[in-house]
Design a protein around this nucleic acid. Structure first.
Lengths: 252, 252
DNA sequence: CGTTCTTTTGACGAGAGTCAAGACTGGTGG
DNA sequence: CCACCAGTCTTGACTCTCGTCAAAAGAACG
């Protein structure tokens, strides 16, 4: 219970900031709960193509959405950090087209669709907030597409590190920022559409260049400016509230 | 007015089929309208990063969402056909992160956000339908990511042709299906994360293989089975109702 | 303390990019 | 009616980023 309080607060606050929710709506969001599961790596806790009756809220850990090739080569299409509802969209499309898998040991709260639907029905503003949250996620997906289609390995990796830094930190990155990023290099490869070997080489280039440091899956950003430049990174698409430009409120 | 009737009907029917809307909701959807513009190629009719106050409904033609590189290399992240609301998500995130551009001369109805918001506020089921439609689009995006990250040129192109065939035809593809696909090879390259030259070579391979024919931007599918096999295509993610498996209704 | 999963590196190969030039198309204007 | 022009499409030759294969060294875990 107390375990998931902080991440849930982050989730509710993000929704509220973006959609101007009132106190009743906020309280209702904070009351969300459900069965807790501990997901481990290399095993889908939600399978592709099967209907689901709950959404997966990430309390702790790191979760990815996995698409797949006929050869079995996997493509991670989204990353879900602590405080994210991994598959909020499953409320309206219960037949998920993608699998959900933990990249590191993760704590997940399975929030029943029924609960979320009731919430959306009771508070139209919450319904709008859910839709909006989904749309912001979609914006992230489109950045990933640009990354995959139109950037080389160095830029892709840099962009990804920038994104995770910002989402983890809650605002713009800066020199000296240090955070755990529990994905393996194989996971990174699956996010970036590369091979693990090439990720390793690219990571080395970034390290040798003095842009980042890596120690046991803890990233330290030595030179945010150069990293963001390499990744052609601009954080506005994340719609962060923290250290952003502050002009992100929805306009009615 | 009569010009946009058929595509709008298609849009409304798709929303209704997926979300079980009643007659009042349907009527309200069919009453949607707004200023009409005629968009031409090579010029964004909605620019990236600028706030919008309307959604773009495609009556006729072909529209793409464009992301961009620092070098100016563009990545098309989504395709909008006749009967699609190109940026429905802009209702909840008015600051679009991407540009909208016509790939061929297109007729667009600019539906004011205010109208759509009123509709969603009046009919909760419509709000849900809008959200659902956005989610289905997102599912398409994730397929594109798998395409970009984990498939070679031949598979990417085949998959794209399959998708467009299905969306255009309203159901599963089949041999002999013929439809106009008004994108240039440069556009195809921008969708697939390739160069125009390589698209040309790949297209030739597909033609030489007898899988498709191409005549003045009209595609004929000679061998749907082989095309779908090349593209590793499975249409369920599109949530078509027409010739699909029929088990796509939302489960409450 | 061995087994399995990662990370790291090197050598080589292949798919896709780059550059360049010519053919074809549709539209414009003399 | 024809010449011109800009935008496509097509093809070939060469290059380069990234994939493949392989092997060894570290880490994690029971």
């Amino acid at each position: 219970m107390s375990l998931e309080a902080a991440p849930l607060t982050r989730f509710a606050r993000r929704l509220a900031e973006q959609s101007l929710l009132g106190q009743p709506e906020l309280d209702a969001l904070l009351a969300l709960s459900g069965p807790v599961i501990h997901a481990v790596g290399n095993r889908d806790f939600i399978k592709a193509g099967e209907p689901t009756d709950h959404a997966a809220f990430v309390v702790a850990g790191l979760v990815g959405s996995f698409g797949q090739n006929r050869n079995g080569h996997r493509q991670i299409t989204a990353l879900h950090l602590s405080g994210d509802m991994a598959n909020l969209h499953s409320v309206v499309v219960p037949q998920s087209s993608e699998a959900l898998q933990a990249l590191s040991v993760s704590t997940i709260v399975c929030v029943p669709h029924a609960t979320l639907r009731d919430l959306a029905d009771t508070y139209p503003k919450v319904a709008a907030a859910f839709w909006r949250e989904s749309a912001v996620r979609h914006a992230t997906s489109t950045r990933w597409m640009v990354n995959l289609g139109r950037r080389n390995a160095l830029a892709r990796l840099s962009h990804l590190v920038c994104e995770v830094a910002c989402r983890e930190h809650g605002s713009e990155g800066k020199d000296g920022l240090r955070f755990p990023f529990l994905a393996t290099q194989t996971h990174l490869a699956d996010m970036l559409g590369l091979t693990p070997v090439h990720v390793n080489r690219t990571l080395k280039a970034l390290r040798d260049d003095g842009v980042i440091e890596l120690d046991n899956r803890v990233v330290t950003i030595c030179d945010w400016g150069r990293l963001a430049h390499h990744g052609e990174f601009d954080s506005t698409y994340l719609h962060l509230s923290g250290g952003g430009n502050g002009q992100d409120q929805i306009r009615h």
